[in-house]
Design a protein around this nucleic acid. Sequence first.
DNA 1: GTTATTGCAAATGATTTGCACAAGG
DNA 2: CCTTGTGCAAATCATTTGCAATAAC
Lengths: 165, 165
Amino acid sequence: MDASVQVRLDEFIRRRGLRRTAQREVILNAAFSKDEHFSADELFERVRLTDASTSRATVYRTLGLLVEAGLLREIDLGDDQTTYDPNFLDKPTHNHLVCIDCGRVVEFEDAQLESRAAGVTQRLGFTPIRQSLKIEATCEHLRTHGRCPNLIAARLSGKRLRKKR
Amino acid sequence: MDASVQVRLDEFIRRRGLRRTAQREVILNAAFSKDEHFSADELFERVRLTDASTSRATVYRTLGLLVEAGLLREIDLGDDQTTYDPNFLDKPTHNHLVCIDCGRVVEFEDAQLESRAAGVTQRLGFTPIRQSLKIEATCEHLRTHGRCPNLIAARLSGKRLRKKR
DNA sequence: GTTATTGCAAATGATTTGCACAAGG
DNA sequence: CCTTGTGCAAATCATTTGCAATAAC
């Protein structure tokens, strides 16, 4: 985990008169231990590995904090639960491509898309704050080879593939 | 309501061996009576005006049907409940700009954004199926005039302004 | 007649919250 | 100390579902 994440949270906590706690520490570490997206529950599971006493409620509360602090961002991948993305610090303007076949999520940045969207926003009489492009697509690999390695992996791990409940 | 909507639903129903019912008729009409976005509950309220007997459960079930039939599309505006957009028949590739100040939603199309995103998708090894750009922005009007007509209207109508529960 | 559909009420499941206790500064 | 944070369990709230009754075709 990048040390600056720790620093940013500390600043946010101080600025707001909040407190540093062991739980927030553990949760922060769990959240930024990989660059993978995660749900509140997945994070809770990760947290348990280190610290069995931290409660699910605290995970939810801390997630809210981290989002407010600008460390995490909530993204919508099309399923029912909120997904958290820890990669906006490194790539502040990245977008997401979701594979309809296997559920794989690919992140990408594109400066032209970014500026074009900003222009459109201005023209409409607004000031752009944040923009997110979600592309849903099918896997070229699946169509040409008849199978998709990610799909197989996803099924094995019992991962939920799109769509609500 | 455009008559073609009716036709499309009928075709979908026939193709799938489903049945035309009074409830589906009423719900379809309510959904396409305006070009405004709506939540399941808002639609249910609209439906009650015409027909007090149709249940909330049937509204939910029919919404699923209309989405499958390609008549409605679920969009994410950042609040907790699913929002349905009836305007994709007229503007198949439109995107959304959400004003952070007042919650107003502006729809816009942009062919260049569209094709650029499609190009990126191809380059990543996927076939684009659908793409949605959501822009969050602040109101120019609010900053320069100190007030936003939409914000006032939104507050008066007790509209929920972003963020979860 | 079959099979799909509906209404009702109960179930679900992610997320939030009230409260009494614990802990940071 | 005084206030914020936490765990727990109960509460929320949108959405889904089981089931018996109803209505398409």
